[in-house]
Design a protein around this nucleic acid. Structure first.
Lengths: 353, 353
DNA sequence: TTGTAGGCGTTATCAC
DNA sequence: GTGATAACGCCTACAA
């Protein structure tokens, strides 16, 4: 009864089995098979065993798409990265996928290349997936994006940076502060001429935030900020140009310390220093950001900041899972999770005044 | 008749608009709105304009989930990577997402960490998404995985490596061959003692393939292969250990050239050489694999192989799109797309015999 | 160019 | 513990 093939032209999905096929084979109704997957404890042990056997035998896999539609929420967590190809975001992604692995949630990724517009577009696309949660990696969205986020009514997490007072859960660390940390590291050693070196073409707006933090720390110390912007795409080359420019200044007026926007630039400087007849850190102290894998191996080994990249991704995903279990955080719950960004002091930042 | 709200407790989705809402507002039927999205040319210009206005105003976004279910194929391309956090796979992913961007297809990612079992699990999960296509990054699947792939009946692409005779479309280059290329590079310079250095804990089975290619090339030249396996997790450290081991051998019997499993190991060796009182490449020529960004900046600059990572990802995605447009490739179409893996000769591999 | 009917595979709701 | 029924939001097929 309840014959499926109502008419001759009824649509039929390719060859794959459905929950009804499994149910028919087991001689039960399809809802029971559904329960087998979603709340096995409600199915008798004997039946459970029988279903398992059948499912294994025919290789049935429940359709996420149909399940998502019926239950009202797709089984996806969507994440908008700023630069998928960078080590930073790769680590974030790995943290997320590892954490999501067991939950049956899939990670849907988009890349915004540090652009607000692309981010908005990605969010718009994601809305169509009715995601379980959304993970973003910046705080300044377009008004349209911000409106969508509020309307979505699902957990939204802003990871990587940490900005107080946002309406969404934060996981990460304050980037402005990191610039200040490096500045103070040199100020405490008695430096007075500290330069921040960044690339003109830096898409990464976070580098600008670090420059800002650096400038604030300098101002607090009553010193003049000195941000050098280099017009060169390649980060290593830009770093090399930064150190070379320094080498042309008279020793008594050139910066005593250089803070590079990231470790790649700093590495470029360290590797190029011998060609400029500079001995580091004697002639100039150096620091970077990001703790690239090469940094500890350079000579001098590079002082840098080590953000907990993987952990931030992991924590963001974990937060999603928690909010799903516990429901949206109660009104005054802490929604700012500060993850460490550790200052790793190595040889390169040792000042020789 | 056919009243929708049959009973009082009928399920209602949250607040988001549906295609019916849009249709009602425009005074047309919902199928027309569907056409507006899927084949706008079938909708009159005037109506198109009106719909656009309404859709923009209420911020309607079609549900991918419902659409996927109704049309029988989710709008997703699934990809199983071996190590999401590595630069290699990050570049592949970027190539794919960039190419898929405009097509309305989303990339669903999973990470297998070089494990066959995890890959099988990922494929099983993906099957539930009824993906439009599947992109894999290895060739040796578990029997169960292989069975699923055949049953899936969708485009399956194996990217990164290139193995002849596979039933699936191939995009990449033969990894075994790359090991031979490096070996020959040294053989042609007259070297007779060439060592391949890899890490014991290398998960990357591709490194083993390169070692194999190296060994074959050595055999062809009538020379003995010499594969050194170093028990050390950290790649840079392993490379450093490799060069240090060499430094302890008498100059007249130690390897004249070292082929490292990857650029990180080679970089570790180059950076550690001064500490071993070795001058490179005079005391030993060096080559790596992967063309890491640092490699060109090292002194000596590192000779390496440069796989077209981004292009492989891009090409894989493009192949998916093509197969969707043109239908599955005709019987005897070429299904092996060889993408370049270029030998980049730099200072480090210059032999001094 | 536009509309009607019904199904895609699953789950929520209520009943037994 | 198990089942009948009706959605979920959209799209294919066919009709006008």
């Amino acid at each position: 009864m309840t014959q499926k093939q109502t008419s001759r032209t009824t649509r039929r999905k390719a060859g794959s089995y459905t929950i009804h096929d499994v149910a028919a084979l087991a001689g039960v109704s399809s809802i029971t098979v559904s329960r087998y997957f979603n709340s096995p404890e409600k199915v008798s042990v004997a039946l459970r065993e029988r279903l398992r056997e059948i499912i294994d035998r025919i290789g049935y896999v429940p359709s996420q798409v149909a399940g998502g539609l019926a239950s009202g929420h797709g089984r996806v967590v969507c994440a908008v990265m700023q630069n998928i190809a960078s080590a930073t975001f790769a680590d974030l992604v790995k943290g997320m996928t590892d954490e999501l692995q067991a939950s049956g949630l899939q990670l849907l990724l988009a890349n915004a290349q540090y652009s607000q517009e692309l981010e908005e577009q990605a969010i718009r696309t994601f809305v169509g997936w009715h995601p379980t949660a959304l993970i973003l990696t910046r705080h300044d969205h377009t008004p349209a994006a911000e409106a969508m986020l509020r309307a979505l009514n699902i957990p939204v997490i802003e990871a990587w940076g940490l900005v107080p007072g946002r309406p969404f859960h934060q996981v990460g660390f304050p980037h402005i502060e990191t610039g200040a940390i490096l500045a103070r590291h040199f100020l405490e050693q008695g430096a007075t001429r500290i330069q921040f070196v960044m690339s003109h073409t830096t898409e990464d707006f976070r580098a600008k935030q670090r420059a800002q933090g650096y400038a604030q720390a300098m101002a607090s110390a009553g010193l003049k900020a000195d941000v050098q912007v280099i017009a060169q795409d390649d980060e290593f080359e830009a770093g090399a140009m930064g150190i070379e420019a320094l080498s042309r200044l008279a020793a008594n007026c050139r910066p005593q310390a250089l803070i590079f926007a990231n470790d790649n630039m700093a590495a470029g400087a360290i590797l190029h220093a011998p060609a400029c007849n500079l001995v580091l850190p004697r002639d100039c102290a150096i620091a970077g950001f990001g703790d690239a894998s090469i940094s500890a191996r350079l000579r001098p080994a590079l002082t840098t900041l080590r953000p907990a990249r993987y952990q931030i991704g992991q924590h963001a995903a974990r937060t999603v899972l928690q909010q799903l279990t516990l429901g949206p955080a109660r009104d005054n719950t802490v929604v700012e999770d500060l993850l460490p960004c550790e200052l790793v002091i190595r040889e390169s930042s040792q000042l020789h005044l």
